[in-house]
Design a protein around this nucleic acid. Structure first.
Lengths: 208, 208, 208, 208
DNA sequence: GATGAATGAGTATTCATTCAT
DNA sequence: CATGAATGAATACTCATTCAT
């Protein structure tokens, strides 16, 4: 599941075990990173939280930053999985867009702390790992680009081709925005009301 | 200038000196935080960069987090100042909105690294300080809310009152987005093209 | 061969197997110790190098220091074997000395890295093991003492009896010296030139 | 005194203080290295032994290996100083050699543990530092070369020019040998007896 | 006999902060 | 007011050894 899990070397050979233990590590670390942030979480805390000894944990990772990478990768996998659940090629572009956006906003509501973690800690990743994570964000954005293209093709959406990429980014950001502006938005809007208005706006623009 | 500078106690009594030294500290720290991030910058480095001894620096702050607060506060002051330069009550709401948005996008382009810093390090502030910084973000957002209200009143903008706050947030975020998505956006758009499209879209929505 | 191999307990009973596996361990460890030194070599590396699992390796030793002991012991065995090859009781003392010294210098040239290892790592052995290794050094030295004695008896060498032990040590050290001073000696002398001069000197002294 | 002390950067600016504290560090570390060896001595032990907090100690060094370098450098300085005390250009080469050798053997007796430390731990130094230390050994050896040359010139010593360097090394090693073979030599000889015999031998060789 | 996952005490090093001068 | 030496708790990571399978 965690797609790039295998990019990180492990001392332990047994693939199954590695998968399993890393899932433990991700679960524990994610919890702590969300509560205290990456830098204020110690490796020992992570080990304790996921029920491994510090030595055992290090059999499955090479550095603390690996843990952050695993967590970020896992979150992106989760986001991608959830979004893809709502995708279907049998629909019109417009219908697809509607469903995908709805799902995107729903997921942002449900996993808002996870997404916030991505926003706040991606910069703590080493260069290489960071660009992998950013690449994944691009891929998700590309899902919306494809939908928009399809809508243009099947004439259910009207949008200047030069705006396709931008609009895809806008959809992503206006969804993610709930995660990092909830502290202000929630004063005026529920997630549902927020979703309704933003989707209406986005859809209107894509209709013209 | 740094509005809340006086919230932070200093050992030194001479107000003028405090102001001056803190300006030094902010300048040096901001540079380093932008380059290496808050956690990877040491107090010694900050002191060296701003030409003070470590002991002297601590005469003007109480903790490393104070420095982060000063920097964030200063950035917000700068942003606010720049935005307010473009405001004038003699115009129509629509004209104001146009000018304010243009300025906002322009500033986001110019100070994108500063804004990125805010996005990435605000979470490292102690609770109290963070809420002060978030409050400032709210105040800037409120500037757009006021403009939108004025436009509704003078009939140059058409917008459902329940959407005013949301639209103000959208304006803010679509501007700031350039700072944290530049790595992807810049592949397709220049800042000018980006600004043109986003402003057109936002304006269209506020017109109906 | 490794004379004291049996001083070190093994979990495995099969003597043949123990002998065989320990030879593997010695070969791998010696290589690594020479390259990186005892302390910077890990047990895992040793196991990998000699093609055993870490668990299996520990069936044949009790501690990392045991490995060092085995290696040192093996080196001494090798040195002793080589030196004894050149000994023969049918010769005069003088002839024996000549041949033994020549062989000693030759071996020091060939196994200089081995001898250097002894010089550098003996001190890392536990007390007990160290004294065993030092004892072996004494025994080799004693070989030269015997030769010198024989030469005195058969009148082919002239040397004050009180100097016999010292001269034996001198022979040993002037040979080994090539291993730990090669970095300086090799600038001026080849091993052959070095051997020629040192042997000539030693022999002259033992003649009168 | 410790000639290359200034090759190692210190956080502390005050040269006097650096000199003083490093002397403390050297004293404490030397004691521990002699007793337990470099690898088995911890930085905390060194700090405790020399009466500094671990943090303070690290203000004066950059790494544990720096401490080893300081110690080795200091020992060599001491050896050089002592040896030079016995040198005088007003004497004949032969007289000089006599006095220098006597002093060398005397110092080897007095500082045998120090020299042993050099023999055993030099290899633990980082490449760069090691070659500096070896260079110092060369320089001391060169002192004997000069004396031998002088003796040849003033006709008080007879020695083939091609043997000068080798004989200098021999003098060095036959002195140092006491430090790493005392465990065997002391069974038969006192330092005085040892010195007498070795010097006699060396001198004889340099006479014809 | 063979394996390799698990363990956790142990290690070098850093760095925010203080305080005597 | 300025300085910078002193502090030591805190931290990421290692590695010899064990033991259940």
């Amino acid at each position: 599941m965690t797609r790039d899990s295998n990019r990180i070397p492990s001392m332990v050979k047994n693939r199954k075990l590695v998968e399993e233990r890393r899932a433990q590590i991700i679960r524990g670390a994610q919890k702590l990173f969300m509560r205290k942030g990456f830098h204020k979480t110690t490796t020992r805390e992570i080990a304790r939280e996921c029920g491994l000894s510090i030595g055992t944990m290090y059999e499955y990772i090479q550095s603390k930053e690996d843990v952050l990478y695993l967590v970020c990768d896992h979150i992106h996998s989760e986001l991608e999985t959830r979004l893809k659940e709502a995708l279907s090629v049998t629909e019109t572009g417009r219908e697809s867009l509607n469903r995908a956006m709805a799902q995107h906003f729903k997921v942002m509501g449900e996993l808002s702390d996870w997404v916030l973690l991505i926003y706040q800690e991606t910069k703590s990743l080493p260069k290489k790992a960071r660009s992998v994570i950013l690449q994944r964000e691009k891929e998700v954005t590309a899902l919306f680009e494809e939908i928009l293209q399809r809508g243009i093709q099947d004439n259910t959406l009207r949008l200047d081709p030069s705006s396709v990429s931008l609009m895809a980014h806008n959809i992503m950001v206006l969804g993610e925005m709930w995660t990092f502006r909830r502290w202000a938005l929630a004063e005026h809007y529920t997630l549902e009301e927020y979703t309704r208005q933003q989707m209406a706006w986005l859809l209107r623009e894509c209709t013209n």
